[in-house]
């Protein structure tokens, strides 16, 4: 039984190895949930809007600063540098909620899996705008 399982595992691994490499995950892959974006919107209007009026965090400005960078960069920025009046005060969960709202405002689709707070996972996702 053990031999069979081992053989099957090897076979499966070999099959996987033959598959083309998965496309790098990007922010166009549905990497946050609508619920996170809603909470992020509340946080935006509660805190962020003091310095970031609408139009300053979406579109060309956002693209110029963030397109092509790992999502962990944005997380680090939000988590450690924001808000300006009290940097570092957002919890990890609040930070990714704000990020979800920003992604939503930049027309990146929501998905069914919540955005994690793990930097390692976020580091494997590339910010990609159309």
């Amino acid at each position: 039984m053990g031999m069979l399982l081992a053989a099957a595992t090897i076979e499966r691994s070999a099959a996987q190895a033959k598959k083309p490499a998965a496309a790098p995950k990007t922010t166009m892959s549905g990497i946050y949930t609508p619920a996170q974006a809603r909470l992020g919107e509340d946080m935006y209007y509660g805190v962020c809007v003091n310095c970031h009026p609408k139009g300053t965090y979406a579109g060309a400005g956002f693209k110029a600063n963030w397109n092509g960078r790992p999502l962990s960069d944005l997380y680090d920025w939000v988590k450690t540098k924001m808000p300006k009046s009290e940097p570092g005060s957002l919890t990890p969960a609040e930070s990714v909620q704000v990020m979800a709202y920003i992604l939503q405002q930049n027309k990146m689709p929501a998905g069914t899996t919540p955005m994690p707070t793990d930097r390692n996972v976020l580091g494997e996702i590339t910010i990609r705008l159309k």
């Binding site: 790098p24 092509g68 960078r69 790992p70 962990s72 960069d73 944005l74 680090d76 920025w77 988590k79 450690t80 540098k81 940097p87 930097r119 390692n120 996972v121 976020l122 580091g123 494997e124 996702i125 590339t126």
Partner: peptide, 30 residues
């Protein structure tokens, strides 16, 4: 840029690795 790569190398640039845990002695100003 603090909290992000100055050179925009994309995900490959930093590899998404979590920074080593640092204490106050290695903390950034501010």
């Amino acid at each position: 840029r603090a909290g992000g790569a100055g050179a925009r190398g994309g995900a490959a640039g930093r590899g998404g690795a979590a920074p080593a845990p640092t204490g106050y002695k290695d903390a950034e100003p501010g």
